[in-house]
Amino acid sequence: MLTARDIMTTDVETVAPDDDVAEVLTRLAQAKFNGYPVTDGDELVGIVTQGDLVDLFQPSDRTLWIPVGFPPFLESLTYGIDLSWDNLDVGLDMVRNSGKSISDVMTADVVTVAPDDDIDRVLDLLADRERDINRLPVVEDSEARSASDSRTQSGDGRVVGIIARQDTLRALRDERLETAG
């Protein structure tokens, strides 16, 4: 059976907790993925995603909510329209958030897997609708844990790889092609 080690990417780009939000957003805009594990030295301390950073640059106070329907609008649809998303606002948001560190916006409660976890565990985590995970850091713990242990806390260990949803799909496809051929 396939394990996390078989499908993970070992060349993992990370950011540090004290990295500047604007710097990380710029790096992410040029990357082919949507998030970074946050490490302090070798230790995983969080994860920051595109969604975490975009939320800083589209605050809800600029949204005009328009009820559509007949008064008194009790059962009507509501549409949100962003009134001011332009270059000036992006610049103002960058100035307002400059100096803010990744530790201020990252998720500290990270879902991870171990290198020897089987593909079923990986699939269960990536298919979990509640968590909506796109990338799973693969960490090596200093203490041995079983694959059924819950790994959802920062400080789990050293990042040795990462698994994206597409990595899992590609591995399953390749395994099927091997068994069919």
Score class of each variant (00 low, 15 high):
residue 88 L to F: 11
residue 159 V to D: 01
residue 149 D to R: 03
residue 106 M to T: 06
residue 156 D to W: 15
residue 89 D to T: 11
residue 162 I to S: 05
residue 90 V to A: 11
residue 87 N to H: 15
residue 97 N to L: 02
residue 104 D to V: 02
residue 110 V to K: 02
residue 78 T to P: 07
residue 158 R to M: 07
residue 152 T to N: 11
residue 122 V to D: 03
residue 131 R to K: 15
residue 163 I to H: 08
residue 139 V to G: 07
residue 120 D to L: 15
residue 76 S to D: 09
residue 108 A to G: 13
residue 144 A to C: 06
residue 101 S to A: 09
residue 152 T to V: 06
residue 85 W to Y: 15
residue 168 T to Q: 11
residue 80 G to H: 01
residue 165 R to W: 00
residue 149 D to N: 08
residue 92 L to F: 07
residue 165 R to V: 03
residue 118 D to A: 03
residue 160 V to S: 02
residue 91 G to Y: 10
residue 118 D to Q: 01
residue 119 I to K: 00
residue 130 E to N: 13
residue 138 V to W: 05
residue 90 V to E: 03
residue 123 L to V: 14
residue 80 G to I: 03
residue 109 D to C: 02
residue 137 P to F: 01
residue 135 R to P: 00
residue 76 S to I: 04
residue 121 R to L: 10
residue 87 N to F: 13
residue 150 S to L: 12
residue 112 T to K: 08
residue 148 S to A: 11
residue 114 A to S: 12
residue 111 V to N: 10
residue 118 D to K: 01
residue 158 R to S: 10
residue 107 T to Q: 11
residue 166 Q to Y: 14
residue 162 I to L: 13
residue 93 D to N: 13
residue 143 E to Q: 10
residue 163 I to Y: 04
residue 161 G to N: 02
residue 147 A to M: 10
residue 84 S to T: 04
residue 160 V to G: 05
residue 102 I to C: 15
residue 141 D to K: 14
residue 99 G to C: 00
residue 125 L to A: 07
residue 86 D to T: 07
residue 165 R to K: 13
residue 80 G to F: 02
residue 148 S to N: 08
residue 144 A to H: 12
